[in-house]
Each structure stands twice: as C-alpha cells, then as structure tokens.
C-alpha cells in the first residue's frame, strides 16, 4: 500500500477521469454514472484504477476481479463501449480520457459493475462440457495418450476462461438472451473435437437458439482475449450439423 502511495505522490499530477456506472439496488432505479479522478500511471490497468477508487475514494464501489493476469476471467467489463478484461487493458490506452466503465452488456446487473452470470452457467452445463466415456470402468491410473495432432484439433477451444466478453460483444445474444452463445458452443466443440470424447452434443447444438441462431457477426472472435475464435467454432458446427442432417448416417 505504501508503495502505491509513494508512487502516486511522486507521479506528476496527471490524472484521468473515470466514469463508472453505478447501480445500487433499492437506491437507483437505473444505472447512473459517477465520475472519479484517478492518477494516470503508465503501468496501471483499468482494474488498478478501479481498485484505487475502491481503496481511496469510494469503498462502496462493487466489481469482480481475482487474478490480475488474464486467467480467471472475472474482471470483464465494458470499457468505452468495448468488452475488455480490465486487468489486461491499460488506462493509458485512453489518453486524456475520460474512460467509461460499464458492466458487461447482455447480463442483468446485480450491483455497479457486477453482473448475474447464472444464465451462462446453466447454458454451459447444458452442453456437457466434460469428456464423455461409455462402457468402461478404467483403473484410476489409466492414461489416454494423445498425439500432438489430436491435441491441436481442440486446443484453441480449450483456452476459454469464461470471461463472457464474447457474449457482451454478440448482438444476437444481447438482443435475445435465449441464444446459447459463443463460449458455450466453442466449449462444446472443445469436447466434440477431442479424440477421447465419445459423447454427442447434436441434440443441444442443432437448435434454432443454438448454432442456428448465429448470424456470423464475428464480434465474439474480435472480443476474445484468448484467441478462442468462437465464431469459427460455431461455423464449423453449422457445417457438421448440416452434413449430418442431409447424410443421416454420417456421425461427425
């Protein structure tokens, strides 16, 4: 803490205005913006600015974060209208400011910058995001070796950190929350394309609100901080599902 105080004092008086969306249930009928002046430190991420506000200016501000290194996926917010990991976005990127911080679009706001992700969690489990094996009771020590090619086939989709930036970027999801959405479909593909998986997710993917709801805007892919490319995952499954529908005997 003292380190920060020192550094802040030593830094010139350069500050940046941060406009934070506040929503206090019972108090605010709808979100309002509150402005704060935050020191503009060269190495501060937007999340550091929020933590500065919470520590020094206004302890009532609520937001989620944990790892500060882009792996936990909990700090996603809308920064100047774009879904971003706030721990991976520098304040200095916004020059003189102001920077506008809002909760992720497309999810109900619980408080300030905290959104309700229960809906996504239900969607995620609906695609059975685990390796499905059939008819075996292997010893605990059993191994399932994979070749580098077999790993390569799904690795990209396994990088997802459930940060939900892709949902916030997707107009289809924001307009119609029944859409299964980018990350859930990409994670379904992560298991579909795994050589060890024996499951079949056709029943949950081949639906109007699933892959067929996607109109290939492509913004999920632009928003994804982990280069999962959910748009591609969805397009690939459209082709798979279409071929399976016309050639009923082909499985994948």
């Amino acid at each position: 803490m003292t380190d920060t105080t020192e550094a802040v004092r030593r830094a010139s008086t350069r500050t940046i205005r941060v406009e934070v969306s506040r929503y206090r249930p019972g108090e605010d009928a709808e979100p309002v913006f509150q402005e704060y002046e935050v020191p503009l430190m060269a190495d501060w991420a937007v999340l550091d600015g929020l933590n500065y506000i919470k520590d020094r200016l206004d302890g009532s501000l609520s937001f989620r974060w944990s790892c500060r290194m882009g792996v936990c996926g909990s700090c996603g917010m809308n920064v100047n209208g774009e879904p971003r990991l706030t721990c991976g976005t520098f304040l200095s990127e916004y020059g003189e400011g102001p920077v506008r911080i809002e909760p992720l679009k497309g999810f109900p706001v619980i408080r300030d910058l905290v959104v309700d992700i229960d809906d996504f969690l239900a969607k995620l489990s609906s695609v059975r995001p685990w390796l499905i094996r059939e008819g075996e009771e292997p010893p605990l020590t059993a191994e399932y070796a994979q070749t580098p090619e077999q790993l390569e086939a799904y690795k990209q989709y396994s990088m997802c950190i459930n940060c939900l930036l892709c949902y916030s970027a997707c107009p289809v999801y924001v307009l119609d929350p029944d859409f299964l959405g980018p990350a859930a479909i990409a994670l379904a593909q992560r298991y579909n394309l795994d050589s060890r998986d024996m499951g079949d997710r056709f029943d949950v993917l081949n639906l109007e609100d699933s892959v067929w709801g996607c109109t290939f805007v492509g913004e999920c892919t632009s928003a994804c901080p982990k280069h999962v490319d959910p748009a591609e995952a969805i397009q690939r499954y459209k082709l798979t599902a279409a071929l399976r529908s016309v050639l009923p005997w082909s499985r994948r």
Binding site: F202, D203, N206, L207, E208, W212, K238, A241, A242, R244, S245, V246
Partner: peptide, 12 residues
Amino acid sequence: MRRTPEPYLWLL
C-alpha cells in the same frame, strides 16, 4: 430428438 428445418435452410 426435435427436428428443425434450419440445417437445410442454411445449406440453401
């Protein structure tokens, strides 16, 4: 399983 015309429409 629910049948949907979407795959055919998408192919067209």
